[in-house]
Write a protein that binds this DNA or RNA. Structure first.
Lengths: 205, 205
DNA sequence: GTCTATACGGCGATAGAC
DNA sequence: GTCTATCGCCGTATAGAC
């Protein structure tokens, strides 16, 4: 699955990532991480002094992963509709590859928001440029006029939420049929793009 | 806040609800629940034999609350657009009143899906009738043709996700300005309705 | 660096007086 | 029914041999 390195530290990081993402900070056990890494508990504390420290290392890497470079997409010279499609493609591809991220991040952010805030500051992430570009597209009449912040939240909601609620969808909508659920998630790229474009495109045809 | 009853059992249920919803099953402490109820730990175990049992009682009530009667709205004789607006209004009113529910439910459902499944079966909830009504609206040309399951997930995503991601929105979008965040959430009813209706309404004007 | 053994604290649960 | 006191487990963290 992941690039398994030979050295112990990477084995620990890899194991810790798997266990933390699945169980969360509170549900994870140092014993389980040690087992998955093929070592013992004492060695975990030798490399990382505490469970907190180990978790911070993992969480920091994951936050970096989950805030991909959508800024770059928006900087490009393409039509706004193309940018929207690109962002949805990029984000849903990322989530299909890491379907546990939304539930994990939401859980940990709600448990300790300050931890997340520090990381956002460290990564220097700012949404302002994106809103400017959206405003410009509205000024040009490329898309209808609306509140850009709501537009962004609409799109991210439709992309992210279904992964966080996957067990519910799997059971309520598809009666625990794994193939049907998988098919549904495969379709979402197309469905979200169509829905959003229909909502924001001025009357054309 | 809540209808505080005099008898101990209700004081416990009320305290447990507050603590469990804020901290989750894994984060909650029996001591904290006892403190909030103004009693001691032993009495908790006298009324509910274990932490698990107490949690089940709370979770069951909350799931009942979070699945409101949107079925009834859909049964009515109104135009489809009206039904959509009504559902969004109902759901967002519910969530404004209980903003912690989404994060709590997502956390617990991902921790132990089977617990949730049993409750859904007990409540006898089925989405099939809703999908039928959506199909009929499409047949009549009242809304554009699309996959009803995706439509439902789109709408629920836009309603629920922002509450689960509230700390992120509060910090990244509004720089920890509480009033601005509150205003944003107040606007969402209107914004979600407009967005959805634009996406699903056939070309009119 | 890696292991075994153990200390230490927290928490769910119970015993038993009132 | 309600309390105080305490048990026993489990999980993090450390000591110390190799």
């Amino acid at each position: 699955m992941n690039t398994k390195k030979d050295n112990t530290e990477d084995k620990i990081l890899d194991a810790a990532k798997n266990v933390f993402v699945k169980k969360g900070m509170e549900g994870a056990r140092m014993q389980e991480i040690a087992d998955e890494a093929g070592i013992n508990k004492a060695l975990l504390h030798y490399y990382f002094r505490s469970k907190d420290k180990l978790f911070d290392a993992i969480f920091s890497k994951i936050i970096g992963l989950a805030f991909p470079k959508i800024g770059e997409i928006f900087q490009s010279d393409q039509a706004f509709a193309w940018k929207v499609e690109q962002v949805i493609d990029t984000y849903l591809s990322l989530l299909m590859k890491h379907p546990y991220l939304p539930a994990f991040i939401l859980k940990e952010v709600n448990r300790d928001p300050s931890m997340f805030f520090k990381l956002v500051l460290k990564h220097g992430f700012s949404p302002a440029p994106i809103f400017e570009i959206i405003e410009e597209a509205m000024d040009r009449g490329e898309i209808i006029r609306m509140n850009p912040q709501h537009l962004v939240v609409h799109v991210l909601s439709m992309c992210i939420f279904p992964f966080a609620a996957k067990p519910i969808i799997h059971f309520v909508l598809f009666d625990e049929d794994k193939q049907a659920t998988q098919a549904f998630f495969d379709e979402r790229k197309q469905e979200v793009k169509q829905f959003v474009l229909r909502a924001i495109t001025p009357e054309l045809k």
